[in-house]
Design a protein around this nucleic acid. Sequence first.
DNA 1: AATGCGTGGCT
DNA 2: TAGCCAAGCAT
Length: 359
Amino acid sequence: MLSDHLQVFDFNKKLKSWYLQNHRPLLWRQTSDPYKIWLSEIILQQTRVAQGTPYYEKFISDYPTVFDLAAADERDVLRLWQGLGYYSRARNMHFTARQIVAEFEGKFPQTAVQLAKLKGLGNYTAAAIASFAFGEAIPAIDGNVYRVMARLFGIFTDTLSNEGKKEFAAVAVQLVSHEDPATYNQAMIEFGALQCVPVAPDCKVCPFNDICYAFKFDMQAKLPVKTKKAAVRNRFFNYFILQKGDQLAMQERKGKDIWKGLYDFLMTESTELVDSPDVFFDDIVMYNILSKGRIREIPKVYQHLLTHQRLNVRFWWVDIPMNSDINLPEGLYFYSPEEIHSLPKPILVDTVLREEDYL
DNA sequence: AATGCGTGGCT
DNA sequence: TAGCCAAGCAT
C-alpha cells in the first residue's frame, strides 16, 4: 500500500504521465458538457467502447442537449438504444432528463452526492460526472479501477460485496488527486482498460511493476476477486407473428421480465422445446387466432444468449386473411412496416424480421 | 446480499 | 465451444 503522501504524489505523477502518452482520444473526453459526459457514462456501463461509440454519436446527433432528450418519446429513445442491451439504462436516462429539465431548468446538479440521487446514477457514474464536468476531487471507481487497485495493493476482498466496496473506496480516497481529479479518474480507468487488462496483462511494460503486489507474487489471474455468476437458465419462447395484409401484430413488453419497453409478438413460453403449434390449440384464445390463419414454421430454433438466460426461440408466421375478424388479445395491435421499423425491438426480433425480408 | 438485466467480441 | 468479459444500477 502507498503509505505516505510522497508515495501517493509519485504514483499520481507516473499515472498522469502514462495517461498523457497512452490514452485514446475518445469523443466524450473532448468536452466538459455534463450532458455529454453523462450520456457517455451511461452508454459505457457494462459495454465496450467499440460497441458504444456509434450509439454515442447517434444520440448526440439526435438529442444534442438534455432538453432534446427530455422532449423525446421514450419509445424513440429506446429505438435509438436498440441493440445496446440493458434497456433500463435508456428508460432511466430519459426519465432523468425530464427531471433535470423540470426541476433544475436543464442544469445538472454539480456534486456527486446530488447526482447520485438521480435515477440511473449510482456511486460510480455520479463521481465520474462530478469529477469530469465539475472538477470534484472524488474517486470514480469502476470495474477497471477495482482491478488496478486489487492488483497493485493486493486487496483480496470481493469487489462486489459491500465490505469490498467500502475497503476499496477508503483506499481510493487516499489516492485521488486534488490538483486534477478529472485526469486522475480518467487515467485510472484508462490504465485498467489498456494496460492492467483482465486477462494476460503485459506487466513487463507496466510503469508500476516495481510496486505491484500481483506482479511480485504472480497473482494477476487471481485478482480482483469476484463472486461467481449465477447459472444460466434455459427458457423456451414460442412466437406467433400474426400478419394481416402488410401489417404485423406486436405488443409492448411490460412487467419485470427481460426487454421491458420493447416490442415483440404474441408469445407463449413453454418448459421445453415445442415442435408443433398443435399443442397451443388447447388454449381457446390461441385456437381462435391460429385456426383462422395459415401457419408457416420458420424452420430454425434461435438460441439467444443473455447474461443469465439461454433463450430457445421458435417462430411461426401466421397469415390472417384480410376478411377475417379476429380479436387480438389485450395489448396486441397491428402495425405497418414503417411503424414496425420505428418501434424498439429486441435484437432477436429485428434479426428475424430482416431474415424474413420484412424489414 | 444476491440477483436480474443485453449484446457482442474473444479465446 | 462454452464461458468470460465489458466505464453499473435497481431492487
